[in-house]
Computed example of a mutant assay.
Amino acid sequence: MNKKVTTYDISNELGISRNTVSKALNNHASISEETRKKVIEQAIAMGYNKIIPGSSERPAISRSTKCIAFLTRIDVSASGYWMNLMSGVEDVLRGSGYDMKMSFIKDEDIISLMVPPMLNSTIDGFIVVGMVNKAYTEKLLEHSLPKVFIDLNAELPLTDLKTDLVLMESEESVYQITRHLIESGHREIGFIGDINSRSLFERWMGYSRALHESSIPQNPNYCITSTHSTSYQSFEGMADTLGALDQLPTALICGNDLMALHAIRFVKENGMRVPEDIAISGFDQMKETKLLDISLTTVTNDEFQLGMRAAEELLYRMQRPNRPFEVIRLSTKVCFGESTRTTRA
């Protein structure tokens, strides 16, 4: 059973004090009309049932407001990539007359399998961004509201999946990069990324397929596929991970550009060169890679379009709830850069 919504929950969602929330809900004269309206809208969306009579009338809020929830455990404000993705979602929803409300999935929610309270109120559907564990994903999948996932836990099979799923194409792109490295003479090729994510699992499959087709054995010592992806989403974690290897591979395929940036920094700080000593590739074509002194081999990934497509799919699902669920992959393109331009004997 979902817990009762409190003023603390509302203040946490809005990032304001609990005292301000309480005053707004009680029509206190010290609270501005703008703040009062924001608090009451959030309270209604989350299913809070102690709104003082008349308070919802002042800002002219209606429970018939069309609204979509954006659920994520990612700090979208910390990355241009995720901000662009969210902007794509907002662009489509705004043009279709829907408001978007963001809800951050907390670690304690995942442990207790507690879905965001707003899903039990006036929300018309929701989009889940970023991978969460299998149990919590299954909890969200049980919800009756129309839903779309951007990425998914790889432990869940795509057969009989009770949601629409939107991804960027991944397997073929990484297959091409791995083939390129093999044709350049590399035989000791590593991979780093959390393969519990469907997107990263498909990148892993592209890497594995290329090695298999070339009859190159996969060296587990060069494959870092820990489910604790945060251990190499920071430079410190990447340095600890790579530093623990007895020997580095001659080429390293990173699950995304952020990992590639950390890996390149580690290599350079340890007196090695990219690509002469180790070739490195990424995925996503992040703007931050422009600061490197070499061009990075990566894969184009239009996150704004990804967000738009997910929102479009949710609107489609809401209008046609009985149509077969879809797994949608947006096309990508490999951009070969200087970071993998080596020829080995």
Rank of each mutant, 00 (worst) to 15 (best):
M308I: 06
L93R: 02
K3Y: 14
N19Q: 14
K37W: 08
Y207P: 03
I280K: 08
I31H: 01
I264F: 00
K287Y: 08
F149D: 08
R58Q: 12
W82E: 00
E312D: 13
L211S: 02
M131K: 09
E57D: 12
W204S: 09
H186M: 11
L165Y: 11
N49P: 01
E41Q: 03
I278Y: 10
Q233I: 10
H228I: 10
G185A: 10
R323T: 09
S215T: 10
S231I: 09
R273E: 11
P117R: 15
L200F: 13
D151E: 08
G185V: 12
G95A: 07
D99G: 00
V89Y: 02
S11G: 04
I224H: 06
D151S: 00
S79Y: 03
S231V: 05
T225K: 11
N270G: 03
G193T: 05
P116D: 15
V39H: 04
S62I: 08
S121M: 06
K23I: 04
G125T: 03
M1W: 09
R273A: 06
E188Y: 08
K162T: 15
G190F: 06
M205E: 10
L252D: 04
L141A: 04
I52Y: 14
L242S: 00
K287G: 09
Y136G: 02
H180N: 15
F325P: 01
S234V: 05
E188R: 10
D99P: 00
L161V: 07
M286E: 04
T159R: 14
S103C: 15
I61Y: 13
V166W: 12
P59D: 11
K101S: 07
T340V: 06
R58C: 04
K268E: 13
F104N: 11
Q247A: 12
G337A: 05
D194R: 15
D257H: 09
V267T: 02
G255N: 02
R179W: 00
R63F: 06
P217R: 05
G88H: 08
P157V: 07
L261Q: 05
G97L: 09
V274L: 09
L248G: 00
T72W: 01
M86N: 08
V132C: 05
K147M: 09
V334C: 03
I216C: 12
G190R: 08
T241W: 05
F325V: 05
T343R: 14
E13Y: 07
C254N: 05
M318T: 02
V148N: 01
L306T: 04
T137N: 04
P220I: 02
R198L: 15
A345V: 07
N256H: 06
R36M: 03
G206H: 01
S11L: 02
G282C: 07
L252T: 03
S170R: 00
H143W: 10
H186R: 11
A279E: 11
I278A: 01
T159H: 15
R317K: 15
I192K: 02
L181M: 13
S79M: 01
Y98L: 04
Y207T: 06
R273W: 03
E90G: 04
M131H: 03
E41W: 00
T297I: 06
I182W: 07
N84L: 06
E188D: 15
I110A: 06
